[in-house]
Write a protein that binds this DNA or RNA. Structure first.
Lengths: 201, 201
DNA sequence: TTGACAAGTGAACGGATGTTTACTAAAATA
DNA sequence: TATTTTAGTAAACATCCGTTCACTTGTCAA
């Protein structure tokens, strides 16, 4: 069959996102695909290798996205001018795009859930969780706010008040009956925050 | 031995919070306690019964706390006057106490982590997660804000802007080197939000 | 003192786990 | 066309899983 290796990746991720890595058996993944577990080992040397391929795939996707949206990459030291360039409108656009990315797109949504389930299992996983979803985006926003506001503004608090609600809405979205209402709540928050901020710049 | 049943409960919870229910074996729990797994079945009829005792314990503890802090209980229909009674100062006190409860106290902190890991596994668990940590507190705050502000205020957005940052700080706290700094960030947020709100009442 | 009970041991149970192996059939390559 | 590679099967592997059972203690009431 064509594309079996890719199907294994996405099927495994879907299951990892629901049950967690350890609770998903190789047989489950195989039977979900309608093949035997032996066939799985023709594509990946073991179960752990599937998991690591998922992580690697996410890394690549993430770097591509940061460039696409013209946001400064977070893990390199950037000049302050790079953050200053980032206008409020661009922050709004990026944040809403990022929200849809982590909730509505299948791969990244499942990846977020998987990371959520694996975050306490090892320091490697907790680092990834923090980097992608918690302290990472928070510190990123803090840097941006520090660059575009005056010095006496508490950039950390600003970042917390901007990203905190976004972060909470990820969890609310997961179990919401009315997903559209959650997107609208995000819209109202982003809008209200940025008009509030404009008065203080 | 005295208190073995209690030790099984807390030891199992500690492990469930790290690895998730399925990834923790009965032998692990037993050997952590220095007994054989056979002995475990003298206290609980099976592994699932340990898990359910943990859930039940949390329910009891939670109800007791809500009463202690004089906050209206969330799952019964309350008169609007009950919420109006709840002053801003009491909200501040309750929120900070709740934060310490979910982060610094061993049982409730482990319980929060366990729920986080189990939330996608069954609808029962996702309900509990939402109720204790996400949509629950959010809706609770929404009700309070609706009662103490005028009608044209967006109580939902207010609740999101108040509880979102708190919710994010739970995750930040988990992996923060400087836990004190996180508590101070919470303090600054709660303070800044409530002074901001006073101007709009 | 006797006897019931509570709390532990350790071996055994059937079944599921991740992985390897020998084999097959189809497809790609020479 | 002949040969090698690829992608699959099915069975076997040692090991671990949750659970049960026969058995040994120590404690406490009758």
């Amino acid at each position: 069959m064509f594309g079996t290796k890719e199907k294994i990746l996405t099927t495994a991720l879907k299951l990892f996102a629901r049950k967690g890595y350890e609770a998903v058996s190789v047989s489950m993944i195989a039977s979900e695909l309608g093949i035997t577990k032996g066939a799985l080992y023709k594509h990946y040397k073991n179960k752990r290798a599937i998991f690591e391929s998922i992580i690697k795939r996410m890394e690549e996707t993430d770097i591509a996205r940061a460039k696409e949206y013209g946001m400064p990459e977070s893990d390199m030291e950037e000049a302050a001018s790079d953050y200053a360039r980032v206008s409020l409108d661009r922050i709004k656009t990026y944040t809403k795009a990022q929200f849809r990315y982590w909730t509505e797109e299948e791969f990244s949504s499942d990846f977020r859930k998987m990371l959520t389930l694996e975050q306490y299992g090892s320091s490697e996983m907790s680092k990834l969780y923090q980097q992608y979803l918690a302290a990472g985006p928070l510190g990123y926003m803090e840097d941006i706010f520090r660059a575009i506001t005056d010095e006496k503004t508490d950039a950390r608090r600003l970042a917390l008040e901007f990203y905190g609600p976004v972060f909470l809405l990820y969890s609310v979205y997961d179990e919401a009956e009315d997903k559209q209402a959650v997107l609208e709540a995000l819209e109202r928050h982003v809008e209200s925050f940025s008009t509030e901020l404009k008065n203080n710049i």
